[in-house]
Design a protein around this nucleic acid. Structure first.
Lengths: 334, 334
DNA sequence: TTGCGCAATGGCAACGTTAACATTTGGGTG
DNA sequence: CACCCAAATGTTAACGTTGCCATTGCGCAA
């Protein structure tokens, strides 16, 4: 056991088992045209030598890698962990692996991402579009490199998938109106956030669809501190009985801000957030919020690539609705 | 442009450029023994055909994949996102890619993880040891598969890296003692958590090292709710002027629990957490906590594999200390 | 002019696997 | 007993790349 073993190949196994390389290959793939007795002999040889099929040889021969590439601009981001969980779960299901790459560069383009991916052992790629790529409109995926974009936008040549942020706002606003509120105030996010702006549109248009002119919104910056300030402002507005915040941190901040001005939640004002990100961090409130199934989004993306074995690409646009989770921060005032 | 292009190989480029395949290969690797003029002609051909070197062919030839495999039991977990960021950053630096796989199975063994990895295009692997594998003590890494475990435990054959949980507690306890506190109370976590138990040991032993007998600890379950309950209990203990909680959620819950019993933080009681996970979620307190650099842990792991190009493995054990971040929840009572 | 050395390029083989085809063997049928 | 068929196994070639060695062409010193 002194020398370093070079990697064991079918040839070595074949020699030891006294069969041809092809029979070894057939045994690996459990072909029915190998006698059980022979198979057993080959398996024994594989065990003895510690044989593992070589990925490169196999891929070269097959022209497939059974791997999906994932490109992300910044890995740290709300929901990314769940999305990754989804990628991994779906890949696992299809016997695929996930290859992860960080994307950078100014300007950030789908073209360069795609080009980089094509030198990696992947059959398709998923791009998490935190940023808007400069060439979004004109990009065409490489032939043979099925591409799925995680974004709310539609694309003529790539399948896209994401959470439905517009519908999320529709659900929240209609829910609050059903509880008897005459209008819904809104704490927004910075204008550069694509998904945040979709939430804003959803809020605005749903109110209008119910014949209600949207009140002045309060602009936040995702932080609880900005929610706190917004809560203090809205506490002085007598028409404000229901507040919808663009994320949970601002919603929680808002609650504390309202309380600092003597308003109680939900007795005086109802509050709803988005993202279900408070988890077990806050002890004294079960916030009413919208939960997105990011894992499902991730699974869909990988399914689209790994599931379509040889099937025609077929561009599809998919938006998954969130689920409104009732907590203790909304009161029915009818 | 009607037919689907098969993948473009060196052969195609060579033909178009009127040179041999070898010259194309040399051009790809920017060998100095190709005339600049020839290089340019080859490059033009590559551009025209959209040539990308084939990963499988290259790996087969070279016997290297330039890829590090990462195995995780559950992807969702404190710090995993930052660790991933570290993996990706380090891989990027070395021109490597990351291949992610989810691990399951009962019992969970390093052996099966390793075996699964060896059929993937990776040169080494990193295992995030959220769970204790059944064969931790007896595992030997596959030859040629450099293995790094992310855990606090040492291993005779694999390099290991993680945050230093013991030192974290030492820092917190000594910091609080320096502020004049006579003892430090502790809110622990469930006993099954390896890192949590290390924090507990660190708290206990540091107090003893200062000649202080550790007071009765309060057992929590990582949630703010359990911290809240602990805070209420400790509020009635007159000897309790400083509390160290095993994570930030419990620390925040504890603060609210103390307040519910009329104690103020930090005027009456000082509180310190761990993990720096509150971020912008809580509006009204800047918690004193310990911040770990999980990204650095991730980078170290991948550096160890990707950086050691041909170098002898060399088993190493690395623990990174956290940094105590001063907030507004500790008071100097000297 | 001849010969030498160097720069530039080409030819060949091999990495490990497996699809396609070829061959062998044994058993049944006319 | 010749024949054919099916089951089991073997042989060959090719996937794309690149290390090694061979070859070509050219300038320069002898």
């Amino acid at each position: 056991m002194a020398a370093v073993k070079k990697s064991v190949s079918v040839k070595d196994v074949a020699r030891l088992a006294g069969v041809s390389e092809q029979t070894v290959s057939r045994t690996v793939h459990d072909s029915p045209s190998v006698r059980p007795e022979t198979k057993e002999r080959v398996r024994a040889a594989m065990r003895e030598l510690g044989y593992r099929p070589n990925f490169a040889g196999r891929s070269l021969r097959r022209g497939k890698f059974k791997t999906v590439g994932v490109a992300m601009f910044n890995i740290t981001g709300t929901g990314n962990l769940d999305r990754m969980e989804g990628f991994a779960a779906a890949a696992d299901k299809h016997g695929y692996a996930i290859t992860l790459t960080k994307v950078d560069g100014h300007p950030y383009t789908l073209e360069s991402t795609s080009s980089r991916m094509s030198a990696l052992p992947v059959d398709g790629m998923v791009v998490i579009m935190n940023r808007m790529p400069a060439d979004f409109g004109t990009f065409e995926p490489l032939p043979g490199m099925q591409t799925v974009l995680v974004t709310m936008l539609e694309h003529p040549l790539c399948s896209t998938v994401d959470n439905d942020q517009f519908d999320c706002s529709r659900q929240v606003v209609e829910y609050l109106l059903e509880q008897g509120h005459k209008t819904v105030h809104f704490i927004s996010c910075p204008e550069r956030s694509l998904s945040g702006m979709r939430r804003e549109e959803g809020w605005r248009e749903t109110l209008r669809a119910h014949g209600i002119e949207p009140p002045q919104l309060v602009r936040g910056d995702w932080t609880a501190q900005s929610g706190y300030a917004a809560g203090q402002v809205l506490a002085d507005d007598p028409t404000c009985t229901a507040i919808y915040a663009s994320n949970d941190a601002m919603a929680y901040g808002c609650i504390r801000g309202l309380e600092s001005r003597g308003k109680r939640v939900p007795q005086d004002v109802s509050v709803v957030g988005v993202d279900d990100s408070l988890g077990d961090i806050v002890p004294d409130c079960r916030l009413t919020t919208v939960r997105f199934d990011n894992k499902r989004v991730g699974m869909w993306a990988v399914d689209k690539i790994a599931g379509a074995e040889g099937v025609a690409p077929g561009v599809e646009h998919m938006l998954f609705p969130g689920v409104l989770v009732e907590g203790d921060t909304v009161r029915d005032i009818r």
